[in-house]
């Protein structure tokens, strides 16, 4: 189940997670596994969806991939480098390869920074461009995100933007440093249904143009089916299903996967029946 099921078997994965475990000790002396021997790969330029309900450990895994947290066992490899064992200093040059896109909330951005400052800060973290370069690149990225008029947006604070605009700014911040892979943790939750489509299309465009891979974390198996190349289903800290998106959805093997699919379908069936 852990083996690389991609078609392009000669190409190395951009992100590898192997036997990741994280345990917590409970008050009565027991052990609770938030993650148990989780393994997965993300190939360059592809989208791997990590599906599971809240509390299944998806976000913890995301943080480990980003080296914001360390696993108790197992390792993380980013573009061939063992990041799980690196110190903050050692990690620094690798940071730009992997970037996060979080769910939109009031905590996604520093409320006291303007859009211009947010983007500039991201750009300056890896290189030393001059002001003119930063300005030009910021405008270009905002245009790419359909955040217009770019000049006006630059002056604004995050709380002055709409939810959809903020989420696009989130993505803009992530692609500022030209990452090879983006870890998107529930990027659609909290957004209106009408916006979700736009965000997904935007992500798809970026993937086509820049070849960015996505570790797409979500609880929505329907979106995974539409958007991802491969799906990993997570339940109670373990990967229970892992394979090509279509295969997983159309012929699921694990009972939990079946439950997920059924509840998604049920919703759709009911809706269809009501029409």
């Amino acid at each position: 189940m852990v083996e690389n099921t991609s078609l392009r078997s000669e190409v190395a994965p951009i992100l590898r997670l192997r036997d990741i475990s994280k345990k917590y000790y409970t008050r009565d002396g027991g052990v609770f596994y938030a993650l148990k021997e989780v393994s997965l790969d993300v190939m360059p330029g592809e989208t791997l969806a990590l599906v599971g309900e809240s509390g299944s450990g998806k976000s913890t895994l995301a943080r480990m991939a980003l080296n914001l947290a360390k696993p108790d066992a197992g390792w993380v490899e980013l573009a061939g480098h063992r990041t799980s064992e690196m110190s903050a200093q050692e990690m620094k040059p690798h940071r730009s390869k992997i970037q996060p896109v979080f769910q939109d909330s009031s905590a996604t951005f520093n409320p006291r920074r303007t859009v211009r400052q947010i983007l500039a800060q991201a750009m300056r973290s890896t290189s030393n461009p001059d002001d003119a370069e930063v300005e030009a690149k910021s405008i270009a990225i905002l245009e790419q995100m359909s955040l217009r008029p770019a000049q006006q947006i630059l002056k604004r604070f995050p709380h002055e933007l709409s939810g959809g605009q903020r989420q696009r700014l989130n993505i803009a911040r992530a692609i500022c440093v030209n990452p090879s892979i983006i870890v998107a943790d529930e990027p659609l939750s909290g957004a209106d249904v009408s916006i979700r489509g736009k965000v997904l299309n935007l992500l798809r465009d970026i993937q086509e143009q820049a070849g960015v891979a996505y570790l797409f974390i979500t609880h929505d198996i329907a979106v995974s089916h539409a958007f991802a190349n491969r799906i990993a289903v997570m339940h109670e800290g373990k990967i229970v299903e892992y394979g090509e998106a279509r295969e997983v959805v159309e012929s699921p093997k694990h009972p939990y996967t079946k439950v997920l699919i059924e509840s998604a379908l049920l919703g759709r069936e009911r809706l269809d029946a009501l029409r």
Binding site: R63, L66, L68, A88, M91, K92, P93, R95, S96, I98, Q99, P100, F102, Q103, S105, A107, T108, F109, N110, Q121, A122, S125, T126, R173, V177
Partner: peptide, 13 residues
């Protein structure tokens, strides 16, 4: 908060 994590992902000390 998430923006702090985002800053860490940029390598800021």
């Amino acid at each position: 908060m998430e923006f702090v994590d985002a800053l860490r992902c940029l390598g800021i000390a």
